[in-house]
């Protein structure tokens, strides 16, 4: 859809040094938005910056016709976006792309790296609890980042989470894959005596974050036989599958390498089909 969405809110959240903003848009996008999809926003009327900015949907409220987006000011485009005031209108394409599969039973393991947690927020809200148990593993640079990017929100939601920081200023020091791996070992041990695997609750996983993290999480999930979906990020132009700028590489059933478009075929993909470091 080609929309004009009204800016309800657009403000810095958390520590100014982290430059993370929350934006709420009111309009039609909320009607069809699914967790994992994104909106493609034109940040200014001018042609510099030229391209729209793809931003993942972090919250969906159909009744209020609102979607929530979090973004970090990282360049000219996001800086201009941060200057938009409430009650202004933005040109929005979307919601675009394919979203996450939402499990209906078992335990849903969510792994997020840095600002990759933003699409995970809308996913958590869409999962019916307590039928599905959620556990989030979230890694960030430091305490300031995690606080700015929504730690309080997680606490309010009452989500079971484990956090890591690179500098150890909050949670466990290290990478998010460490507690994830450890948790899976515990789960595996606790069901070690159960011979009939249909008696153990199914495990599902979804992840969003930097490519290195996604690759590591994919390996862990493949080892443990857990179906994983990953949300990929790639430099994007059109957002609708026309320009072939944002491709990722997959292996098809016949074993051949193929491209898929992050904007149209994704951004959410089955992790097992993705070829990391394709080199071609």
């Amino acid at each position: 859809m080609y929309l004009n969405e009204k800016v309800v809110e657009n403000r810095l959240v958390g520590h100014p040094g982290q430059a993370i903003y929350k934006m709420v848009l009111k309009g039609q996008a909320a009607q069809t938005a699914q967790p994992g999809q994104f909106v493609h926003i034109r940040v200014a009327e001018s042609f510099d910056p030229l391209l729209r900015r793809p931003l993942s949907i972090a919250g969906i409220n159909r009744e209020r016709e609102e979607i929530t987006i979090y973004y970090r000011v990282a360049g000219k485009g996001t800086r201009l976006l941060s200057q938009i005031r409430a009650n202004e209108y933005l040109s929005v394409l979307g919601p675009l792309g394919t979203g996450f599969t939402i499990p209906r039973d078992g335990e849903f393991l969510l792994i997020a790296g840095g600002i990759g947690v933003f699409p995970i927020y809308s996913l958590m809200e869409a999962v019916a609890q307590p039928q599905v148990k959620i556990k989030l593993f979230w890694g960030g640079e430091n305490k300031e980042f995690l606080e700015s990017a929504g730690l309080k929100h997680l606490q309010d939601l009452g989500i079971d989470y484990e956090i890591t920081t690179l500098d150890g200023s909050l949670g466990q020091q290290g990478l998010v894959t460490d507690p994830f791996r450890k948790y899976l070992a515990e789960v595996s041990n606790s069901f070690a005596g159960v011979k009939d695997k249909t008696k153990t609750p199914p495990l599902w996983a979804a992840a969003c974050g930097p490519p290195g993290m996604l690759k590591a999480v994919t390996e862990i999930c493949l080892e443990n036989g857990i179906p994983l979906e990953v949300s990929l990020e790639e430099r994007m132009a059109c957002g609708v599958g026309a320009c072939l700028g944002c491709v990722c590489t997959v292996r098809d059933a016949a074993g051949n390498l193929r491209r898929k478009r992050a904007c149209k075929d994704g951004p959410v993909f089955e992790a097992k089909e993705v070829v990391w470091d394709a080199g071609v």
Binding site: D48, L50, R235, A237, G245, C246, C248, R258, R259, G279
Partner: peptide, 18 residues
């Protein structure tokens, strides 16, 4: 053709490199 590896895009002032 698989085309070239990513990144395939770079934004420039009022322009796009692909």
């Amino acid at each position: 053709r698989l085309g070239n590896p990513v990144p395939r895009l770079a934004e420039t002032p009022a322009g796009l490199l692909n």
